[in-house]
Write a protein that binds this DNA or RNA. Structure first.
Length: 431
RNA sequence: UCCGCGAUAGCUCAAUGGUGGAGCAAUCGGCUGUUAACCGAUCGGUUGCAAGUUCGAGUCUUGCUCGCGGAGCCA
């Protein structure tokens, strides 16, 4: 039989079709039953009329509880009173799987309860909308780089040591070779790949064992990291702004319906167009001071500082040339001012914080060795990485974008835990 | 690790130190156009755990457990 989905039903008005799915809700009025069927593509009101169907079939509607699965056959008709504009007048109904005492009732629930039932929560209209937007963001990310001639190069998830030597990592035994760690970034591997392929990106899960307990943190999250040979910091910022504009405008165009479901203020996304403002760290510090924040040059911005800075703009802002002391060892220092690194962070509007962190990389092996020692990192751990500077070193740059923070920002969510199907947080690893 | 808040029915929440309630869910009934339907009825509790103050504790005190929000760190 031809499989028909709810989002195609407008083409079948007047015809008899069979649709399958789950019961979202049920209402009744005397000898009428209204079954709201969900099949993943939409919602369909099915009307069951007692003196039209057999007694057995009408009786089935009493057995169907919230989230029971069933199939219905009937005639599609236009009906303004039905959500979505069409409804199905049922002739036949088959129960596929009964659902008893579904935990998520059609009223409000607390976050803890919903997270405990995340495997069921995904069935809700809102969560499904978020997952579709997430999917479209990921597709836009891949399309953007693929269309610009980048090659996807997967970086390893099990790594021998910390990439940057800062965060706390998840540790595991690795046979006779001692410890292995879950990756915190694919960046160093992306650099190696860029020396082979010119323009590359890695896209995969990354892990941080930090005990961060905020709306912006997960222990497992996805990151996309482009890396380009023969590119300086300005090239990097050019790429980042074109990339962000493409992702946001594509999602706005392709998933507007879902953003409306999420009650997102679309004007906040429509303004995400090139050029994005570029300010130096020094200028950002000046903004903080003008806003009465007591801030000392040399510190990193806290969440509140980032919000103060980003509130000055109607689109993401690129902050470049941070004090090198607070940045990773591989970032190149500004030849015009060695106190600062050729780094850039992109802060999303509306207090969503840092969504991109990037830099021009240090290509000089001597400077890199000095920097490794300064960060108390072992040279032998970076032998292969140093080879990249020994055999035809070139200026190169790249950045990393956190997928969940981007999804949270675009969807207008108040916590990243809703941006990923099964979030991993410091006090939660199930379901 | 630190700071703040919280834990009462399956869920969301009420309850001045004085008989623990409501809405939703569930169960039963009513209604031929419902829109998180509505109306009537029924069911539902070791108030997170342990101790203390009190004639009397969901409520006050102490400790513990768990969770939530934030800081630091970061994407």
């Amino acid at each position: 039989m031809n499989k028909i989905y709810i989002n195609e039903l407008k083409q079948y008005v007047g015809q008899e079709v069979t649709v399958r799915g789950w019961l979202d809700n049920k209402r009744s009025s005397g000898k009428l039953r209204f079954l709201i069927l969900r099949d993943g593509t939409g919602y369909l009101q099915c009307i069951v009329i007692k003196n039209i169907v057999s007694e057995e079939i009408f009786g089935f509607t009493d057995e169907l509880k919230q989230e029971s699965s069933f199939s219905v056959t009937g005639t599609v008709r236009e009906e303004l009173r039905a959500p979505g504009g069409v409804e199905l007048e049922v002739k036949d109904l088959k129960i596929i799987g009964i659902s008893e005492d579904y935990p998520i009732s059609p009223k409000e629930h607390g976050v803890e309860f919903l997270l405990d039932h995340r495997h069921l929560w995904l069935r809700s209209k809102r969560q499904a909308a978020i997952l579709r937007v997430r999917h479209r963001i990921i597709k836009a990310i891949r399309d953007f780089f693929d269309n610009k001639g980048f090659t996807l190069v997967d970086s390893p998830i099990l790594t021998p040591s910390a990439c940057e030597g800062t965060s706390t990592l998840f540790e595991t035994d690795y046979f006779d070779l001692g410890k292995a760690y879950l990756t915190q970034s694919g960046q160093l591997y992306a650099e190696a790949s860029a020396m082979a392929m010119g323009k590359v990106y890695t896209f995969g899960p990354t892990f941080r064992a930090e005990k961060s307990k905020t709306r912006r943190h997960l222990t497992e999250f996805w990151m996309v990291e482009p890396e380009v040979a023969f590119a300086d910091l300005n090239d990097d910022m050019d790429l980042a702004e074109e990339f962000l504009e493409y992702v946001v405008q594509t999602v706005l165009k392709e998933r507007e319906e879902d953003l409306i479901t999420l009650e997102r203020d679309l004007t906040k996304l429509q303004s995400v167009k090139r050029p994005l403002p570029r300010i130096s760290y020094d200028e950002a510090v000046e903004i903080l001071k003008q806003n009465g924040v007591d801030f000392e040059w040399g510190n990193d911005f806290g969440a509140a500082d980032e919000t103060t800075i980003s509130n000055q703009f109607d689109r993401p802002v690129m902050v470049h040339r941070y004090p090198s002391e607070i940045k990773a060892f591989y970032m190149k220092r500004d030849p015009e001012n060695p106190k600062v690194a050729l780094a850039v962070d992109v802060l999303a509007p509306e207090g969503y914080g840092e969504i991109i962190g990037g830099s021009q990389r240090e290509e000089d092996i001597e400077l890199l060795l000095t920097r490794l020692r300064g960060h108390n990192l072992k040279e032998e751990d970076f032998d292969w990485y140093l080879d990249l500077r020994k055999y035809g070193s070139v200026p190169h740059s790249g950045f990393g974008l956190g997928v969940e923070r981007t999804v949270g920002w675009i969807c207008g969510l108040d916590h990243v835990r809703e941006t990923i199907p099964f979030p991993r947080m410091i006090y939660r690893k199930t379901p």
